[in-house]
Design a protein around this nucleic acid. Structure first.
Lengths: 348, 348
DNA sequence: TTGTATGCGTTATCAT
DNA sequence: ATGATAACGCATACAA
């Protein structure tokens, strides 16, 4: 490892002070334009590389933003991260990413690692088992902006980016009711997570508003994985009377249910209408296409990152500090899997 | 912002030297166990947080590993990254991730950013338009281990993790030939990328070995996106005579072709057999299920990261330094979309 | 086993 | 517009 060039070397070479070199390289206004140019060229020629360690030490900043997601290999999450990366990259920030794999312990460990590595800000989507967010207190106390998205906690310090899951749940349920469905099964993950709790709320509200009873046995809990599809269908088959709609909180899982449903003799949507969530590619691939909620993951990532960076750059006094929740628009996308009016002629 | 606790504060408090504190906190063997414990407890109590800036400055290490991928919101890439994160996390390294969006310019910019942020090592999958890898020379020269995966370059300094794409292409083509296919269309992205060039090579070899002619008009170029499916099918329809097999280098794209193919009147696999690549969920969702190559992305991420970290920790002298390519096993997964023998009785 | 002294390379403060 | 100096907090060579 050869000796690295420092601003001292450049300074000596050019007969100026290290201070001037530092300023020139940082494009400080109070440096003569010509001097600046000369220094810049010399640095280039000498192969100077700014020592970010020393700069960080002085500035107490890393230009790194920590991200904690439940899982990286999820359609939704990778879209979000892609959106974040775009914005961060353009603003000169790096993304330090870790996944909790839906384990609180891992989430805590990751939060501590990121805290110790001194990220300038945090973007978090909680693990599905995380109940307390006290492991983020260190960030709050130290004034490190920490924003949550999608899976957020109900906490005054927790500014979050979400879609209106209650509204989405309501829209889906209402749509199914309008299609003549009477017994609508709702499949969700852990009820402690805001997204599922809210969708269930919307589901209940819609039933209420249409004078339909809420039947607890129609709420099925599942981790919503591709693999759990078979089990969900098994449970559905046991319901008596059989349901006439399935509202599953995840497209990949909904799409995976299609085959076992067909094998069990259900026609979609005639016997059972099917609705997913997220507008993933899987909802568009299968036949029939699956009705879903468009969940703007990429945009959510962009927006969350934009806000975080504005905050870091002091441009947003008052915007986030007073805001507790920022809600993105989502929309119901109606496809074949739930369109019964067209397909099922009234049985006289 | 309060004053932070340093090892000096602890040292003063406990009547020992900062050196001892530093050693104790780093679990240095030459420190009395009791002293160590006392120091550790005191640090805990005083709310000491190691200043990683200063440590980095001294050690010239960041514990960060840079990752450049073509796109984050890709099924395959997010699996790879998930595998990397798991291994890195366990070994105490952070992942700094950026995406090139398949643009050379962005890839170069990202490489420079990561270089300047002094990552300890690099893991790269090239953009589909990247021809030269000279923007990684700075890493090579400085001895920063830089490994490539999936999309690698043919360069002596470029150690890469790949599957045997030639073999995979061969296996698929051979399988299709065995199923009685005579005119096999192969759809790939940029031929300058090793993965596609190699698959095409395998395709050609298989034809050769079975005394079948190579017809250039049967190779279709596409970005393999979901959206490009319609266009691919359009091109297929124009072929004369019509092909009897489609080997598409990406599952999501292959799955997306299914509907337009059916709409055009093709039965799968009777009229046209269909094969994808990657074993993504989409290949399992559609009907018929799509024959594909299992591409172990998660394992590739794990393996690449393991090797990189071994290298960083000096455990692998000679393993990687002398290796230019590490090949992972992949396998043909035969599903309904290409099984013609069962379905198409011989037309006497 | 512990301590002393020094350097890592930058940026902020204050002065000129 | 430029410079001198100090400080950031740690880890290590060397000394004891």
């Amino acid at each position: 490892m050869e000796k690295e060039i420092t601003i001292y070397d450049i300074a000596k070479d050019m007969g100026v002070s290290p201070t001037t070199v530092s300023r020139a390289l940082n494009n400080h206004p109070a440096v003569n334009a010509k001097t600046k140019k000369r220094i810049y060229d010399a640095a280039q020629e000498m192969g100077y590389q700014s020592n970010i360690f020393a700069a960080n030490l002085r500035k107490k900043k890393t230009n790194n933003i920590g991200v904690i997601v439940p899982r990286l290999n999820s359609n939704f999450q990778s879209s979000v991260i892609a959106g974040m990366e775009k914005v961060a990259n353009e603003a000169g920030f790096n993304l330090v990413i870790s996944q909790s794999l839906d384990s609180v312990e891992k989430e805590i460990a990751n939060a501590n690692t990121l805290f110790n590595s001194r990220v300038d800000g945090m973007l978090v989507s909680l693990a599905n088992t995380t109940e307390s967010i006290e492991h983020y207190n260190r960030f709050f106390k130290k004034g490190i902006p920490t924003l949550f998205y999608d899976r957020v906690a109900d906490h005054p310090a927790c500014t979050g980016f979400v879609i209106d899951n209650t509204q989405a749940g309501y829209k889906v349920t209402q749509h199914l009711i309008e299609q003549g469905c009477k017994r609508i099964v709702h499949v969700i993950d852990n009820i402690d997570i805001n997204v599922y709790a809210d969708r269930l709320k919307g589901y209940k509200y819609a039933l209420l508003d249409h004078d339909m009873p809420f039947d607890e046995s129609l709420v099925i809990f599942s981790n919503l994985s591709e693999e759990s599809a078979e089990e969900i269908v098994e449970q559905v088959k046991k319901l008596d009377p059989l349901p006439d709609a399935l509202f599953i909180s995840n497209d990949a899982c909904a799409a995976s249910c299609l085959r076992p449903l067909k094998l069990a003799g259900f026609r979609i949507p005639e016997d059972i209408a099917l609705v997913g969530f997220n507008n993933e590619i899987s909802s568009r691939l299968v036949e029939p296409n699956i009705t879903t909620i468009n969940y703007p993951g990429y945009e959510m990532g962009e927006l969350a990152m934009k806000n975080l960076i504005n905050h870091l750059e002091g441009k947003s006094i008052g915007v986030l500090s007073k805001t507790n929740k920022i809600t993105l628009r989502s929309e119901l996308i109606i496809r074949e899997s739930s369109l019964r009016k067209k397909y099922s002629p009234q049985p006289t």
